[in-house]
Nucleic acid binder design. Structure first.
Length: 279
DNA sequence: CTGTAATCCTGCGAGC
DNA sequence: TGCTCGCAGGATTACA
């Protein structure tokens, strides 16, 4: 579900609700997430305080600090929302929904909760001396904002894969998923099956800028809710109403009116306008 | 190197 | 209604 704009919205929502709060108690369910996690949690996270929450690609990084000397070590929580993850702060009095996998009870009668019906997400704890940015950076490409032109051209043209596959590859650019890959390709007027190696300088530059514009607008719209997604305070997104092609197969292209087509590319359904995005 | 399919899961809409 | 089928925002792995 969540791509960069959704994750960014969650982080922005959660920041004022979480930073400075102390974890007073915690609960974790029995079901496995994508990676083994519960056993890694020192119970001692109780008593720690949230000092920061940040995003890198589609990952959420929560920094926990010890509240006082002699208290247990804190560290970091690395969270990925997978397809259906929801990460919210809610009043403790609210009922707990199905598929909730952990709760952090905070010091102001609220709790941080992770809910994920399909359990494709993950939650991992790392010790205080971990360089989380570096750890993520080993597999993640750069953030898609303010990218310099030449390295992006080089990265795209180094591959003979389709543009769709390249955009979904988190090691090229971090944060783009199926929705925003299709929307970016439409904005750049590039066919999803075009080969990276075949792009001109101008094509690479259009694509780079299109990604940035699309993601920025999606963040402004608080992300896209197709089914499950909610932000950190439980609010749905709004950008789904501005899709040019995603989920609009058979409907008219907003630019030229031609019928939006759907193809399977890189194993994912890919929506594009055959007139605006010729091969 | 590329592409494809399967895998991890639950839920929902389409079609019969 | 109720059933089956296919598909869904992600990421990894095995295999051709």
């Amino acid at each position: 579900m969540p791509e960069l704009p959704e994750v960014e919205t969650v982080v922005r929502d959660l920041r004022p609700l979480l930073v400075g709060r102390t974890v007073e108690a915690m609960w974790a369910g029995e079901q496995k997430l994508r990676r083994p996690w519960k056993v890694m949690w020192p119970r001692k996270l109780v008593g720690t305080r949230v000092s920061e929450i940040n995003r890198r690609g589609k990952w959420i990084i929560i920094s926990l600090t010890s509240k006082a000397r002699g208290r247990p070590p804190a560290g970091f929580l690395l969270v990925h929302l997978g397809m259906t993850g929801q990460f919210t702060v809610m009043p403790s009095a609210d009922p707990i929904k199905d598929h909730t996998h952990f709760l952090f009870f905070l010091d102001n009668r609220t709790n941080l909760q992770y809910r994920d019906p399909r359990r494709f997400g993950s939650v991992e704890w790392f010790p205080p001396n971990t360089d989380v940015e570096k750890h993520l950076g080993e597999k993640l490409g750069p953030e898609p904002f303010g990218l310099p032109a030449q390295p992006f051209r080089d990265a795209v043209r180094a591959s003979k894969r389709t543009l769709k596959a390249i955009l979904l590859d988190q090691s090229v650019v971090a944060g783009v998923g199926n929705i925003y890959a299709d929307e970016s390709l439409h904005r750049a007027k590039l066919h999803p099956e075009t080969r990276g190696a075949d792009l001109t300088d101008a094509g690479c530059d259009r694509l780079r800028k299109a990604i940035e514009v699309v993601l920025t607008r999606a963040i402004d719209g608080r992300g896209s809710t197709i089914r499950d997604y909610v932000g950190g305070s439980g609010l749905r997104g709004g950008f789904q109403n501005e899709f040019a092609v995603y989920g609009r197969g058979g409907e008219g292209c907003p630019t030229c009116g031609a019928e939006v087509q759907v193809l399977r590319v890189a194993g994912r359904s890919s929506h594009f306008c055959p007139a605006c995005q010729p091969r």
